[in-house]
Design a binder for these strands. Structure first.
Lengths: 127, 127
DNA sequence: TTAGCACTTTGAGTTAGCTCTAAGTCAAGT
DNA sequence: ACTTGACTTAGAGCTAACTCAAAGTGCTAA
């Protein structure tokens, strides 16, 4: 039977609109249809969508995800370029984590000032 | 003398356009002007901008940052609401770090598959 | 004094990623 | 047969955050 678009939407905390948008953008070229023309997601499709969400949530643009999907469809000739994409993207994710850690320090510093009851946290007369 | 907009732009890896946009949106109501009408940033202004960039880079919308700036200008009456804002935002940053860690696992798993030379990483015939 | 450059403003345009509407199809329940 | 509800498409609309263009001002150096 497979999953309907609304079941998948619920599972992934997306809307059906968004999933159709991803499909339209070429991110889901492998989804089967029922006789009525409705999308039917298999378990393997859910794995694909999970990866797509992972890439999207780590800041990869839709267009680049689409590029990756196209490489996948092209077969083993693109194995190396796909591997390299993950290596590059991994580096960006690590950068994001570092940046987040740095920014957390700034936030914690501000919180210390607020918690200490100091009303002049930053510059003497405005913060 | 203070810093010109282009000096600040360089320092923060922003464009002068973007800084003017932030100013227009009410994020920089404290910047002084030279006789010629040009913005002159003080060291204290740079601290403000640093905090603004920190909040922006951790996903806070411009409108909410503007709200914070307005609270700051209102004085000590808003100390508690500002403190609470940082507490809430800190929680969101921690959530982002957790999500990033989870997604990194997925990426590392894919990389293992690619590195092991397996051409069928996800679902048997398409990835 | 004139050229050049960095700055100014207003307001329009761009991009990404949705988000929604309209009009319609299909299958199941009463 | 009819209603209900989930699905379909094409395409328009929306929001956030820039990004740029046009027209103009004011300092500085030759």
């Amino acid at each position: 039977m497979g999953y309907s678009i609304s079941q998948v939407a619920e599972k992934f905390d997306l809307t059906a609109h968004t999933i159709r948008y991803y499909d339209k953008e070429g991110l889901l070229p492998f989804i089967d249809r029922s006789k009525a023309g409705n999308r039917e997601f298999s378990d393997s499709d859910l794995e694909w969508l999970k990866l797509i969400c992972c890439l999207k949530n780590t800041g990869m643009p839709i267009k680049q995800i689409k590029q990756y999907i196209e490489w996948c469809l092209q077969g083993d000739d693109t194995l190396e370029v796909r591997r390299q994409m993950f290596i590059d993207h991994r580096k960006e994710v690590l950068k994001q984590m570092d940046d987040l850690k740095e920014n957390l320090k700034t936030i914690d510093y501000k919180l210390e000032l607020y918690d200490s009851g100091c009303s002049i946290p930053l510059n003497g007369n405005k913060s």
